[in-house]
């Protein structure tokens, strides 16, 4: 399943592009897709295994793999050739999800003054706030990528009626642990930051723990259920530690 550029019949993806002086971006599509996401994760794992000369660091975003190269020691074009050979070696879109995935249940308070944009987001999706909260709480979401801020997951994918745009204005600041929504995705914020996404839930879960043995908690491929709790439970769990009452079990 390769995205095809219909105008010339040639495969447009995957393709390799340059980012800055020392970055290569291997793109598996220009919009989010399940297969593209699996391809990006599997390809990054393969690059890490092969560790081509000059590659300093790798990462993924939704449907791409990024490689940072020591450009002063290794010609990025030479690395790009090696990367192309690796790309050609198999169908990455058919790759499996990463090993060692886990299912997290994260207690979440929907709406209230702690997450004031539930009603607005629900309205955009054509649902009542109660139905919206019920639907999101009942959906098992997957971590598609970690990015933007430390340990911060982009989770998907919600049903089509959740394809709602970002808001025009920026919310000046959402707190750590805020669950926000746009374009069929949820983001759980690891830092307090401005955002154009709508704040629909609040958790006591800390995604980034700089001093801990495992500073980054979630991994791409992990799945998450945002279990609804009431205010009293939320307040109690928040005090209970950095997990905010979250639990985790392996996915077999």
């Amino acid at each position: 399943m390769t995205d095809t550029d219909r105008s010339n019949g040639k495969a447009a993806f995957p393709r390799i592009g340059r980012v800055g002086l020392d970055g290569l971006l291997v793109s598996f599509g220009d919009r989010l897709s399940e297969a593209g996401n699996r391809a990006a994760l599997a390809f990054r794992a393969a690059v890490e295994r092969e560790s081509p000369e000059g590659v300093e660091e790798t990462s993924t975003s939704l449907v791409s793999t990024f490689l940072r190269i020591d450009a002063l020691r290794t010609d990025p074009d030479a690395v790009a050739q090696q990367v192309q050979a690796l790309l050609d070696s198999r169908d990455w879109y058919g790759a499996d999800l990463p090993q060692g995935r886990r299912l997290w249940r994260i207690p979440t308070i929907y709406g209230t003054d702690l997450a004031p944009q539930l009603a607005e987001a629900a309205g955009e999706a054509g649902l009542s706030p109660e139905a919206a909260a019920r639907e999101i709480a009942g959906t098992q979401l997957r971590v598609q990528t970690i990015g933007f801020a430390p340990g911060q997951p982009y989770l998907g994918e919600l049903p089509e009626h959740w394809d709602i745009p970002r808001q025009q204005a920026l919310t000046e600041r959402v707190p750590v642990g805020a669950l926000v929504l746009a374009i069929r995705q949820l983001v759980l914020f690891s830092v307090s930051t401005p955002t154009g996404w709508r704040h629909i839930g609040q958790t006591g879960f800390r995604l980034f723990r700089p001093e801990a043995a495992e500073p980054f908690v979630l991994r791409p491929g992990d799945e998450v259920i945002f279990d609804p709790v009431d205010r009293e439970a939320h307040d109690r769990l928040r005090e209970s530690g950095p997990d905010g009452g979250a639990t985790c079990e392996p996915i077999r």
Partner: peptide
């Protein structure tokens, strides 16, 4: 409409 992608200092 572009997808969120990896960015680097200097971009």
């Amino acid at each position: 409409t572009v997808l969120s992608e990896a960015i680097v200092p200097g971009d």
